[in-house]
Design a protein around this nucleic acid. Structure first.
Length: 109
DNA sequence: CTCTTGACTGAGG
DNA sequence: GCCTCAGCCAAGA
């Protein structure tokens, strides 16, 4: 069982699942943690297959804390609702107090 | 193999 | 602080 067996996508899912409740992280942080710092875009791209994999994609946002991926959710404000349900303050697709809810896999893991 | 796409990021105006 | 441009890399056609 080589590591190549684990696709880039699968690794992204693993890290996404490790994000604690009430916390969020950025695509770049995950990408860097996976050793592909320049592949932040791939992280988001991978999330396209997150459906059905029980992956909390709503906890993954861009470095600004902006819900850039909300368009990929069913509803218009579904992603924001999920985050607010975890105690995260979100206004106009923008996470407030990002520094307080930000979870960096590089530092936490 | 080449071209396009993309849920990003950093630098420059 | 906001907007625009360019670079980056992996996957699909």
């Amino acid at each position: 069982m080589k590591q190549e067996t684990l696709n880039f996508f699968d690794k992204v899912y693993e890290v996404a699942k490790l994000v604690p409740y009430g916390r969020v992280t950025s695509y770049g942080a995950i990408a860097t943690y996976l050793g592909a710092a320049r592949s932040a875009r791939m992280v988001g791209y991978a999330m396209n297959g997150s459906g059905g994999k029980n992956v909390p994609a709503h906890r993954v946002v861009n470095r600004k804390g902006l819900l850039t991926g909300k368009h990929h959710f069913d509803g218009t404000n579904l992603m924001q609702q999920l985050l607010e349900s975890e105690g995260i303050v979100v206004i106009d697709n923008q996470i407030q107090d990002l520094d307080k809810v930000y979870w960096d896999p590089l530092k936490e893991l």
